[in-house]
Simulated scan of single mutants.
Amino acid sequence: MGKLDGKVVIITGCSSGLGKQQAIRLAEEGAKLAICSRTESRLMETKKLCEESGAEVFAMALDIMSYDDLVTFVDKTVERFGTIDVLVNNAHTVTNPGPFLEKPIEDLDTEMHSSVYAYWHLMKLCYPYLKDKPGAGSSIINFASEAAVAGLESFAPYAASKEAVRGLSRVVAREWGQFNIRVNTLCPNGLTDNCQMGFDHLEPDVREWAENAFTDNPFKRAGDPYHDVAPIVVFFASDDSRWITGQNIHADGGTLINA
């Protein structure tokens, strides 16, 4: 028996990185998955891995910034599985880092539309299927960022969009609790393939800081997306988190410790 047996879970951004590892972990816990990404070939690799774990999987290549694509994705998910129990808003397009004065407004548009706007749309589109479920209800998990909390230099659009995600999530948690929907955010610190590729675009001093940030914690090691971060997503998706909403969890090995 898995912790998510019978639950239908939507996860965005599953071709690589945290999204891919979450999908695999959720599949192993018995969830039925609807996954998406821009890159179809890599998405299908994730689909295959999840199916090998015994999951039923619907996969669709789409642009998270296209509202029409999101409508189609949700409609096809419900057509396939009949309902939605969990929404994991993981996808986000990160623009090339640079000083705030040099960042064009187009970069802010990209990051806002790939996170805040996409999360906004998907929460509303999934709402009719998430609302008023019996027992522990349903769950929305929105990905935020510790880099935004810390105000990491050269990431102004990223920080602005990710902090907006946290604010939006708190409001929706308050408004939708009456419908037995819980909404939480997660700030992960896991060294993914995407992070490693992103280091190539950083200035040397920023790159050194970013690389060190992954091991700057009491455990003195980088977090593993599958073993260290994905289990938190499983917890939020499962009935075990039934009494938690409007909260932000730092799955970071203690990088940020405060009262």
Rank of each mutant, 00 (worst) to 15 (best):
Thr12Gly: 07
Val172Lys: 08
Glu111Arg: 01
Pro99Leu: 07
Glu45Ser: 11
Pro134Cys: 03
Gly98Pro: 02
Gln196Phe: 07
Ala159Phe: 04
Glu146Asp: 06
His121Met: 13
Arg174His: 11
Gly82Leu: 08
Ser15Gln: 07
Arg38Asp: 09
Pro104Thr: 02
Cys50Ser: 08
Asp200Tyr: 08
Ile24Glu: 00
Ala173Trp: 04
Ile181Asn: 05
Gln21Cys: 07
Ala160Glu: 05
Ser53Gln: 11
Ile249Gly: 05
Gln196Cys: 13
Ala222Thr: 14
Asp240Asn: 05
Met123Cys: 14
Asp228Glu: 11
Pro157Ile: 00
Ser37Ile: 06
Ile141Phe: 07
Thr215Ser: 11
Asn142Cys: 11
Leu4Lys: 00
Phe143Asn: 09
Ala91Ser: 10
Lys20Ala: 11
Ser53Ile: 04
Thr93Gly: 03
Trp176Asp: 08
Val206Thr: 12
Gly135Glu: 05
Val229Arg: 03
Ala251Lys: 00
Trp243Met: 14
Ile244Ser: 04
Asn189Ile: 13
Trp243Tyr: 14
Leu108Val: 12
Ile10Trp: 04
Lys20Gly: 05
Phe143Leu: 15
Ala55Leu: 01
Asp68Thr: 14
Gly254Ala: 13
Ile232Trp: 13
Ile140Pro: 08
Asp63Arg: 11
Asn258Gly: 14
Trp243Asn: 13
Cys50Arg: 00
Asp224Cys: 10
Ser169Val: 09
His121Arg: 14
His92Tyr: 14
Phe235Thr: 01
Lys48His: 14
Asp5Met: 05
Trp120Tyr: 15
Lys32Pro: 02
Tyr226Ser: 07
Asp200Phe: 11
Arg182Lys: 13
Ala210Pro: 00
Leu18Phe: 12
Lys47Trp: 08
Leu62Phe: 06
Phe214Ala: 12
Ala213Val: 08
Leu256His: 15
Glu51Ile: 06
Arg242Ser: 12
Trp120Val: 05
Pro204Met: 10
Tyr129Ser: 08
Arg80Leu: 06
Trp209Asp: 11
Ser53Asp: 02
Ala164His: 01
Ser53Leu: 02
Val171Leu: 13
Phe73Ser: 06
Thr255Arg: 15
Thr110Asp: 06
Ser115Met: 04
Phe199Ala: 04
Glu111Ile: 00
Glu28Tyr: 03
Ile105Asn: 12
Met65Ala: 15
Ala237Lys: 00
Arg170Thr: 13
Leu26Gln: 00
Val116Ser: 07
Glu163Met: 15
